[in-house]
Amino acid sequence: MKAFKQRSTCPISTALDVLGDKWSLLILRDIVFAGKSTYGEFQQSAEKMATNVLADRLAVLESQGLLSKAVAMDKKSKFTYRLTEKGVDTIPILMELLLWGSQHGPSVVEAGLLEELQAGKESVVAKYQRLAREKALA
């Protein structure tokens, strides 16, 4: 894993230092919207992330405090990943990216989610944050 190096103290630059690659956001997307939590589940994503990239991004997200890693209950050689509170704080960002992407390109959004977001974004963000916190405690 590469050492983390912050380029500047600009808040946007700081966020991009952690979340600025496409793979990290897709891992967070899979946790929030698809309920994925294991390396094998992340590998099954449509984007077909290379195994070395997946391992690196999981390690970076964990080292930056967005994910926690724990031994799986069913198999001691498997790990599960959950959002930390810092990771839960990325959910509004993911929602905004989902809305932007659905407006500006061909996309498929989970049935009802787009309509739910358009009707009341704050309540949808709160719902997904609550679900992520519950999953982290499970």
Score class of each variant (00 low, 15 high):
M1N: 08
K2A: 12
A3F: 08
K5M: 12
C10M: 03
C10A: 08
P11Y: 00
T14M: 09
T14I: 12
A15R: 08
V18H: 03
D21L: 09
D21A: 07
W23I: 14
S24Y: 00
S24R: 05
L25E: 00
L25W: 00
L26R: 00
L26P: 00
I27H: 01
L28I: 03
R29H: 07
R29I: 02
D30A: 10
D30N: 05
I31Q: 00
I31A: 02
V32I: 12
V32T: 09
V32K: 01
F33V: 08
A34H: 03
A34L: 15
G35L: 14
K36C: 11
S37V: 07
T38D: 06
Y39L: 10
G40I: 05
G40Q: 13
E41A: 09
F42H: 14
S45C: 10
S45F: 04
N52L: 09
V53A: 04
V53N: 03
A55G: 06
A55Q: 07
D56V: 03
S63F: 08
G65H: 09
S68W: 03
K69I: 02
A70I: 07
V71I: 15
M73T: 13
K75F: 08
K75T: 06
K75N: 15
K76G: 05
K76N: 09
K78H: 12
F79N: 04
T80Q: 14
Y81P: 00
T84G: 05
E85Q: 12
E85D: 15
K86A: 15
G87V: 07
D89T: 02
T90G: 07
I91N: 04
I91H: 02
P92V: 11
L94W: 00
M95H: 02
E96M: 09
E96S: 12
E96L: 06
L97Q: 11
L99R: 15
L99Y: 11
G101K: 10
G101T: 01
S102C: 11
S102Q: 14
Q103M: 14
P106Q: 10
V109L: 06
A111Q: 11
A111M: 12
L113G: 10
L114H: 07
L114G: 05
E116L: 07
Q118I: 01
Q118D: 11
G120V: 13
S123D: 15
V124P: 03
Q129D: 06
R130S: 14
R130G: 04
L131I: 07
A132L: 10
R133P: 05
K135G: 03
K135M: 02
K135N: 09
K135D: 05
A136T: 07
L137Y: 02
L137K: 13
